[in-house]
């Protein structure tokens, strides 16, 4: 905590999370330290039960740690209340999920604009920025369509547009290609590559090596701890 946090978008110190189960307290995450700098392209890997989902939820401010500190953009967010976390998710983070998670009754444009509704922006700004983001992912012509009118790959592009619309400090993608065929997966990964090329910080959770290979840094979890941390194939830590 003595070292300056300004450098890292994300810095976690001794982050731990335990769940109460019938068999007692189960430690899903056991004191993790990690720093992510702006512009990084990072893959989090590991088998199921390794703690990577728990870690992802903590990074995404969807959950609070049992122990440890979490600095997001320099601010300690480990012990904020639910509404403060909601504001962080809205302003600082962008989520991409495995199941796309678009709202089925809304047009694509409204889906993309939804974070801006919670940010309290006016209708014209919302519309303009949602349009711009849809154009960025190449789907502007479907702006008025409902999600079920387009393919899975296209839906994931819309989800990425939604994640980007409020200009977050980083994108968290949880198995973003898990529901897509390999060809479409490559297209989505190419989009992530392009976004990272534009300087956007990206964290991808995946269990597929060829997806993780797109990232420049691979962090591997096992039994609630970081097992390895490779930077462009080389051991970083």
């Amino acid at each position: 905590m003595s070292q300056p946090a300004s450098e890292a978008v994300i810095r976690v110190v001794g982050l731990g999370k335990s769940y109460a189960t019938a068999a007692g307290l189960f430690p899903a995450l056991k004191g993790v330290d990690l720093a992510i700098r702006p512009g990084e392209y990072l893959a989090i890997m590991g088998p199921s039960g390794s703690g990577k989902s728990t870690f992802m939820n903590l990074l995404g401010c969807l959950d609070t740690p049992t122990i440890g500190e979490y600095f997001l953009a320099g601010e300690n967010v480990a012990h904020l209340d639910p509404d403060a976390l909601a504001i962080l998710r809205n302003r600082t983070l962008g989520f991409v999920f495995q199941g796309f998670n678009l709202l089925p009754r809304m047009s694509l444009q409204d889906n993309v604009a939804l974070p801006l509704v919670y940010a309290g922006l006016d209708k014209e700004t919302r519309r303009a920025r949602a349009r711009a983001m849809l154009a960025k992912v190449g789907l502007e012509r479907y702006a008025e369509s409902l999600p079920n009118r387009i393919s899975g790959g296209q839906q994931q592009r819309v989800a990425i547009a939604r994640a980007l619309v409020n200009e977050p400090r980083l994108i968290l993608a949880d198995e973003p290609t898990g529901n897509l065929d390999s060809h479409t997966s490559e297209e989505i990964m190419a989009l992530f590559d392009q976004l990272n090329g534009e300087g956007i910080t990206i964290v991808i959770v995946t269990h597929e090596n060829d997806i993780a290979a797109h990232a420049r840094r691979q962090v591997r979890f096992l039994d609630g701890q970081i097992q390895s941390d490779h930077l462009s194939g080389a051991v970083a830590a």
């Binding site: 995404g60 909601a86 809205n90 974070p115 940010a119």
Partner: peptide, 11 residues
């Protein structure tokens, strides 16, 4: 989904 993208409890 709404919560993930920033809806507060009161929203």
């Amino acid at each position: 989904i709404r919560m993930a993208i920033g809806a507060r409890q009161r929203d």
